[in-house]
Design a protein around this nucleic acid. Structure first.
Lengths: 142, 142
DNA sequence: ATTCTTCTTTGGAATTATTCTAAACTAATT
DNA sequence: AATTAGTTTAGAATAATTCCAAAGAAGAAT
């Protein structure tokens, strides 16, 4: 009973989040949201989220994980971080911020949004607007 | 004769470049270097370079194009640009500079190295050094 | 509640970019 | 010319991701 109560509480929170994003709160989306947003800011790959969902006792197909990551991104619940040509990371921190990326161990670390300042940006080409400015600080073993 | 002379001249230039980079100047590397560095700064994908080589009458396998792009990158003749999760770009401009990236048509545009300034970078985590700071300005149809 | 309609999920096949492999070749060296 | 070491290549293999069509849930309507 205690257990089901806690699950209900979590699902409620995720449910609100999903409804606010205009997404139907299905069982798998609720579970994935639970896993994604339980702790603070995180960076996940599809494979990692899939694994964590399994570990949490939730069977979701990898295809659904991919669908969900993209839907969450499209609805502003996640942000995609492009730093590695071989895999995609998704970030639960959707605010404007930057990253350290360690290519050696594939680790992403947030840099708070008000830390780095980028100045001197040239005007975008005619007919284009700036959608976003990404700063990736690539680090390696000293 | 005029034709072979011109080819020789080009190959000589590329040959010097390869030798300087410590790479054995083989026929395919010479040809690829010719295509890559003939005009000003360029951004190519493996597929594109392969196509251009074919068009220039040089038969190189795609595997060799990949090998060559990586060797050129490792020797500092090219720089890899990571902006799109589905393909890798290689840039003939190896100086410190930044990019506009138009996700809609996959176009990369250089921003001169002394234009953008990034300030307020936090110190890297213990035991790590900053290898490079990449700034990608994502643009879209206005 | 039951039905109807629409959106989701899923296993598995398909796709795509890229890497690997082992054999055939070529450049540099002796 | 013979030897050695580095290259190229076709094609198989890999890995991440997407596609597909069928089966399953959600929400709305009855």
């Amino acid at each position: 009973m205690g257990r089901s109560k806690r699950q209900f509480a979590e699902s409620t929170k995720s449910g609100a989040r999903l409804r606010a994003a205009g997404l139907r709160p299905t069982r798998q989306r609720l579970r994935l949201a639970d896993v994604l947003f339980r702790h603070g800011n995180r960076h996940v790959t599809a494979e990692l989220l899939h694994q964590e969902a399994q570990d949490a006792g939730c069977t979701v197909s990898l295809a659904t994980v991919y669908n969900t990551l993209h839907q969450f991104t499209a609805s502003g619940l996640l942000q995609q971080v492009i730093v590695d040509p071989s895999r995609s990371y998704f970030d639960t921190n959707t605010g404007s911020h930057q990253h350290f990326y360690d290519e050696e161990d594939g680790e992403l670390i947030d840099i708070a949004g008000d830390t780095v300042e980028v100045s001197g940006l040239p005007a975008p080409p005619k007919g284009k607007t700036i959608a976003r400015v990404d700063v990736v600080v690539r680090i390696r073993r000293a």
